[in-house]
Design a binder for these strands. Structure first.
Length: 189
DNA sequence: CCCTGATTCGC
DNA sequence: GCGAATCAGG
């Protein structure tokens, strides 16, 4: 795969949205997260900053024993303003780094209280107590994607427990999500 | 162990 | 320019 303009645009867009390199890599396909990160740097947009004083550039220095000759910069301490740190801080920032939902993600089916075996149902309720309560963006291929709660309210999250190998849900949720035809045959109401 | 981004360097 | 390998950290 190569970095066509279209792919680069997707990269830029997703990076700007705060998506992780691995998520971007999956979306693009044909590239690893390393490739994405490498490209991000080459494009010069490594800092997701904009107006953010993040520790994005935490210079490493173990890999290469840089002899790094004498670099000037004596103790030139500049003190533009004393800044006595006012007592009351006003949260003037207005950029909460809002995450944008990927959209288009097919959500798992909501548990329809009927049509499921009592055992499984009980198991699910048990599990929901210990769910990790992950947000949409925190989901990975190994976290249970079973939705819990009402999407329209704040009481909404995803199970997040370890998934069954090869399944999108944890053991308990696989139980209610994938039921053999045999067991769901005409349950009397 | 899962994940994150940063950096290096051979290609 | 590219990205695997590697590093540092959560």
């Amino acid at each position: 795969m190569s970095w066509t303009e279209e792919r680069v645009e997707t990269l830029k867009r997703m990076w700007a949205e705060g998506q992780s390199a691995s998520q971007i890599a999956k979306e693009l396909g044909g590239v690893t997260r390393n490739a994405v990160i490498g490209k991000v740097h080459r494009l010069g947009l490594s800092n997701r900053a904009g107006s953010n004083g993040k520790p994005a550039a935490a210079t490493r220095e173990k890999t290469a024993p840089k002899p790094e000759p004498a670099a000037e910069k004596p103790p030139v301490r500049e003190k533009p303003a004393p800044r006595p740190e006012p007592v009351a801080e006003t949260p003037v920032h207005s950029t909460p780094r809002r995450q944008i939902i990927p959209a288009g993600r097919p959500l798992p089916p909501q548990p329809s209280a009927n049509e499921i075996s009592p055992e499984a149902l009980a198991s699910v309720r048990e599990v929901e107590k210990t769910a990790k309560k992950l947000t949409l963006m925190e989901l990975t291929e190994r976290t249970c994607k079973w939705p819990i709660g009402d999407p329209a309210t704040e009481d909404f999250w995803f199970c997040g427990l370890p998934v069954q190998p090869g399944k999108p849900y944890c053991e308990a949720h696989v139980g209610v999500a994938f039921q053999p035809m045999s067991s769901r045959r005409d349950r009397k109401r």
